[in-house]
Simulated assay, not measured.
Amino acid sequence: MGCYFQGPIPSSFSNLTYLTSLNLVESNLNGSIPSSLSNLQHLTHLDLSGNRLKGSIPSSFSNLHHLTYLDLSSNRLGGQIPNVFDRLTNLQTLFLQNCGIQGPISSSFSNLTYLTSLNLMRNQLNGSIPSSLLNLHHLTHLDLSWNEISGQIPNVFDRLTNLQTLSLSGCSLLSLESETSVNYTFSNLEELELLSNNIIGYSKFSGNFPKLEYLDLSNNKLAGKSKYVNSQV
């Protein structure tokens, strides 16, 4: 896939006001994401992944109210996650992995109540996992891996009852050296990746994962017996 274009995204696209889907994946595009794309207010699907786009996500993107799929992954955007997502309330899929974005995970994601897939892996995100993510009750796939996130998984994280895949690898998330044990119940979780964190001992991290098919806890500081109740691992 990819058309091997060169140069910026043409401003003439802004005239395609009835366009519903725009796919420019791996097309060797550079420059910034033009704010004129916000004229495409019938757009439901936008994929600009795998290019060399720089700069921030235009604030005018908040006008794309019908957008259900947005993929800006593998570009060179940088900066923090903007608050444009406050109004993109129909989004179901959001891919922002490997974009060079920094700062905390945006609280504006809490408005994306129809979101089913969120991928923010391989950025420079920091801070803790915000409790606002608990509003995403339809979420089935969440990947926050290989960021600079610290702290612990929120104790009520398992309220995301539809979650099927969860990857938090490479974040130094779990520093469970205290006497506090953590127990989670993920009723639909099928894949759990927690490699290269700082999990100290099985006895401090346990849970009920009845549908779990894949579990990766490699490169941690594990010892003792695990307590994965009713799991298949």
Score class of each variant (00 low, 15 high):
Ser36Leu: 14
Gly7Ile: 09
Asn198Lys: 12
Ile57Tyr: 10
Tyr4Asp: 15
Asn39Val: 07
Ser14Ala: 13
Ser169Leu: 02
Leu176Gln: 10
His66Glu: 11
Ser59Met: 02
Asn30Leu: 06
Glu193Trp: 14
Arg159Phe: 03
Asn208Lys: 07
Leu67Asp: 07
Thr180Asn: 11
Ser150Ala: 10
Ser27Met: 06
Glu148Val: 10
Val229Leu: 02
Asn135Val: 04
Thr116Lys: 09
Gln102Met: 15
His138Trp: 03
Leu194Ile: 08
Leu43Ile: 11
Ser73Glu: 05
Asn111Trp: 02
Ser38Thr: 11
Gly2Tyr: 04
Met121Cys: 02
Leu144Cys: 14
His141Met: 08
Gly201Ala: 13
Asp216Gln: 04
Cys3Thr: 09
Phe95Ile: 04
Ser12His: 13
Met121His: 13
Ser187Pro: 07
Asn51Glu: 10
Leu174Ser: 13
Asn230Ile: 00
Ser27Tyr: 08
Glu193Thr: 10
Asn126Pro: 07
Ser117Leu: 14
Met1Trp: 00
Ile200Asn: 06
Ile200Lys: 12
Arg122Trp: 13
Phe209Pro: 01
Ser175Asp: 15
Met1Gln: 01
Thr68Pro: 04
Tyr214Phe: 14
Ser145Gln: 11
Thr113Asn: 00
Gln152Trp: 15
Leu29His: 05
Ile199His: 03
Asn188Trp: 02
Arg122His: 06
Asp143Met: 12
Asn155Lys: 04
Asn183Trp: 03
Leu72Arg: 14
Thr116Asp: 15
Asn51Arg: 12
Thr185Ile: 00
Ser128Tyr: 05
Leu144Ser: 14
Leu48Tyr: 01
Leu120Ser: 05
Ser36Ile: 13
Lys221Trp: 01
Arg122Lys: 14
Ile33Thr: 08
Leu70Ser: 12
Cys171Ala: 01
Ser231Tyr: 01
Pro130Met: 06
Gly103Leu: 09
Gly224Arg: 03
Ser175Ala: 02
Asp158Cys: 06
Gly55Val: 00
Ser74Asp: 03
Leu46Pro: 03
Leu94Asn: 01
Leu133Ile: 08
Asn162Ala: 02
Glu193Val: 08
Glu148Ala: 10
Pro34Leu: 15
Phe95Gly: 07
Ser117Ile: 13
Leu112Met: 02
Phe157Trp: 09
Thr185Pro: 00
Leu189Gly: 03
Leu64Lys: 03
Leu46Cys: 00
Ile105Trp: 10
Phe95Trp: 06
Leu212Gln: 10
Pro58Val: 04
Tyr18Gly: 01
Asp47Ala: 15
Gly151Met: 05
Thr68His: 04
Arg76Val: 02
Leu112Phe: 02
Arg159Glu: 11
Ser60Met: 00
Leu40Ser: 05
